[in-house]
Amino acid sequence: MITSFIHSFQSELIKKRRTAASWLMLMSALFMPALIIFMRMISFDSTYKEVGLKHFWEMIWFRNWAAMGMFFLPLSIILFASLITNLEFKNNTWKQLHTTPQSLTVIFFSKFAVIMLMLIQLFIVFNIGIYLSAIVPSVLFRAVAFPAQPFPFYPYLKGSFKFFIDCLPIVALQYLLSLMFKNFIVPIAAGFGLLVASLLAMNWKYGYLVPYTYCPMNFKENQGKIDPSIHLHTCALIYFVVFMIAAYILYIRKKEKG
């Protein structure tokens, strides 16, 4: 089973080549850092002063993650999870894939593994982007010193990990929808609708029950605005497991496989 999964995963990686999803992942990861580099370069005075601040790295983190966590990360996941899965519908290849000698379980998880790999790539590239957004002005302008504080590796890793957990329900539900609907618009529209609903629900008492709300709520948690009895990350993990089980059952039980 594991060997079969590895072969299937390698096969899925070939399919990903030159797809819009790959470019989208790269653009999503680098958009905010690029914007911040630009902003810091045109606001030279504040850039000059802020590198010496005690909380410089924390400030850079929040600037990058604010729009990313709130909007770009969920939106990117909605788009690339749907694009990757829709490849089979778009090219009429489900029937070819389902007549290959591999179990449906292997097909299901190898495809999901590619989406997860892209998500991990997005986090890695984005964190590199955050680092670049901090040091590029110092590289380009002699007057701007390099940050005085060392790069806080552990807090960055911990913070990214929390966002990673928080976006898993989005990955799982988008995967489920993309497996079920041939029309690419359906999972995108559903995902976008849920994202807007989650933003609207952020200040609602039961907003934490909306599955796409955990990334935006991550900030509120950091600011101490979330009831400590609510375990956002646990809720996200529960939703993720439930959506994955539902996606697996629906996929396996599909009457027509291409």
């Binding site: 080549r17 797809t19 290959t100 000698p101």
Partner: peptide, 16 residues
Amino acid sequence: YAHLTATENLAVLQKI
């Protein structure tokens, strides 16, 4: 797969 070449299309299945 429309975005892949003939060889890449076959490589997808060769892996499996």
